[in-house]
């Protein structure tokens, strides 16, 4: 075999284990649940193989599922906007700071590394009936009885923002770092105010980073079920909770398949739209 043929084959040998794993552990299982979603789970717990539309009718038609889908999208959208509003100035501060950027970034990454479940539950210490805020308010004499601030949609959003904010800041920061600072100076020297040069030069150039961060925040918050279980009340279930309920609690796997695929279609669709307009490059920059 010639050297060239070997050169050509080598990368495929290196890629084979990874590609095989992704195929067998992701793509084939996804194809399988597409098929599975048309089967029926009978009352006896056995699967009836066939082509039944029942699960899809239930997933798409039941107003219960539809309401939760809409509230999930609403929660994800609010979380994303809050992350952008909180994160953009912070990212701008780090990018334009004359201090030690590495330290500032590292400080931001520290909470990022701290376990998601710990960060989520940490809010119970602050907002719970015997938490810091209630204690403070009672000590100051503002309230007499502890008030229940936890277990509602607001605390779910709070937990999600706390979890996802570093993703947003990191992506915006990467975009801001890529902008030549002299562009802003040039705009200023040509007569625009600092604010104008920010609005007309910096902000538009950083939009890809904002979009990448926004996509991550939206997709990750719309797919969560842990945060609503820890910080939400019984009525704050999100769509992924329905999937968890169907698969783990009710053991109705065909229905769980259909619900999962619905979530995948919506969130995957968003990723595809994003990819079409902006490409994956920006997203990968922020992740790496």
């Amino acid at each position: 075999m010639g050297i060239e043929a070997r050169e050509r084959r080598q990368p495929w040998i290196l890629l084979a284990p990874a590609l095989t794993s992704v195929t067998l552990l992701l793509f084939v299982p996804l194809a399988f649940i597409v098929v599975y979603s048309f089967w029926l789970r009978t009352a006896t717990g056995a699967d009836q193989v066939g082509f039944y539309l029942d699960n899809w009718q239930e997933a798409l038609g039941d107003p219960f599922y539809r309401d939760i889908l809409f509230s999930t999208l609403r929660i994800a959208a609010i979380t994303t906007v809050v992350c952008a509003v909180m994160g953009y100035p912070a990212a701008y501060f780090i990018a334009r700071s004359r201090g030690n950027k590495a330290i500032l970034l590292l400080m931001l990454m520290l909470p990022f590394w701290i376990s998601y479940i710990i960060r989520t539950m940490s809010w119970i210490n602050i907002l719970g009936v015997s938490g810091a805020l209630n204690w403070l308010l009672q000590t100051l004499g503002i309230i007499n009885e502890p008030i229940q601030m936890l277990y509602n949609e607001t605390t779910v959003i709070l937990g999600l923002v706390h979890f996802l904010l570093p993703f947003m800041i990191l992506n915006v920061y990467v975009a801001l770092e890529g902008i030549d600072i002299s562009l802003e100076d040039a705009a200023c020297s040509l007569g625009s105010t600092r604010w104008q040069s920010f609005l007309e030069v910096t902000l538009p150039l950083s939009l890809p980073g904002l979009a990448a961060g926004g996509l991550l925040c939206f997709v990750l918050s719309a797919g969560t079920y842990i945060t609503p279980l820890v910080l939400g009340g019984p009525r704050d279930a999100m769509f992924a909770n329905l999937v968890f309920e169907a698969v783990i609690t009710q053991l109705n796997w065909p229905l769980g398949s259909a619900l999962s695929l619905m979530l995948l279609a919506i969130l995957g669709g968003l990723v595809l739209i994003y990819n079409h307009f902006l490409g994956m490059g920006q997203l990968m920059k922020g992740l790496g």
């Binding site: 990368p11 495929w12 890629l15 990874a18 590609l19 992704v22 552990l25 992701l26 793509f27 084939v28 299982p29 996804l30 399988f32 649940i33 599975y36 997709v219 719309a222 797919g223 079920y225 992924a240 999937v243 968890f244 698969v247 796997w253 769980g256 398949s257 999962s260 695929l261 979530l263 995948l264 969130l267 995957g268 990723v271 994956m280 990968m284 992740l287």
Partner: peptide
């Protein structure tokens, strides 16, 4: 590698799919 962009996307796919969906698919398939 010919098609390296596509290959990259395929290899990154597990984090583009919501983790809940990945979890359900893998559990039910296996």
């Amino acid at each position: 590698v010919p098609g390296s962009n596509l290959i990259s996307t395929i290899l990154i796919a597990p984090i583009l799919v919501p983790e809940v969906v990945l979890a359900v698919a893998l559990l039910l398939f296996l």
